[in-house]
Each structure stands twice: as C-alpha cells, then as structure tokens.
Amino acid sequence: MSASPLFIVLASPEHEKVQLAGMIASVAAVSERPTQLFVSMAAVAIFQKGLSAGERYKGGAFSGLMLEKGAPDAMELFAQGKMLGELSIVACSMALDIQGWTLDDLVEDLFDEAGGLTKFLSDAEAGELIVL
C-alpha cells in the first residue's frame, strides 16, 4: 500500500523552519510519498532568485550554526526532492500579488505553478497536513 500524500504549508521566513520544510519535503518525496509544498506569506520572499545564502536565510542562533557548519542548503533540498522524488511546489498567488512578483522572480526550476489556497486545501484532504 502506498503512503498517503503529505502536504506542507510553509509560511514562515525563518531559516530554521525553511530548513525543516526542506528536510521533510525532500525525505518524504524520495520515500515514495507524494508531497506538495505550498509556500505563502513572508516565506515567498525566501525564494527570491539570485540571493546568496547569507542574504536568503535569517533566523536565530541555530540558523547561524547551520550556515557555519555547512548544513545542506534548503533550496538544494527542495531541488533534490523534485529531482529524486515526487515533490510539487506551489507559490501562493496572493503572496506573489502582494509582493508584485511572478514565478519569474523566484528560484528557477523549483516551482510548478502559482496557485490558490482553495485548490491546495482540497488536495490536502487526501493526506496529512503540516504547517510551518
């Protein structure tokens, strides 16, 4: 029996939560569990194209440790989840509109589409939902 799909809402721009989202999404996706990530609110800004790790990730002391120790870059984790497993990533269309952005402003090849919350929540009825 295949695992139920996993749905993750990432709304926080904090490095620690973005990192955890990347870890959960990538590991679930490569473990034969279809996974969908919905990026909303201030988290959308984390995915801005062209930022260095130092510019992209802001957080507490643990964020600093992760950068210092060379923990996997969260953007790479999302990319590996997509490449090696079944991971789709949706950018919240409302959050994009508020920023005045389109998908072209975000890290390339990560996002499948811009979408709304209604469709995501409808899809999420089929599985488990995590909010970060």
Binding site: M23, S26, V27, V30, K69, G70, A71, P72, L77, Q80, M83, L84, G85
Partner: peptide, 17 residues
C-alpha cells in the same frame, strides 16, 4: 562524511539511479 542529514540519504538515492 561531513554531510548533514538528509544529505547522505539523498546522495545514496542519486547514486542508486
């Protein structure tokens, strides 16, 4: 060695392909 979770697992999966 030196890679943090889930790096080793993801490297393994890429290698298996």
């Amino acid at each position: 060695r030196g890679a943090y979770c889930p790096g080793p697992l993801l490297e393994l999966i890429a290698g298996l392909k």
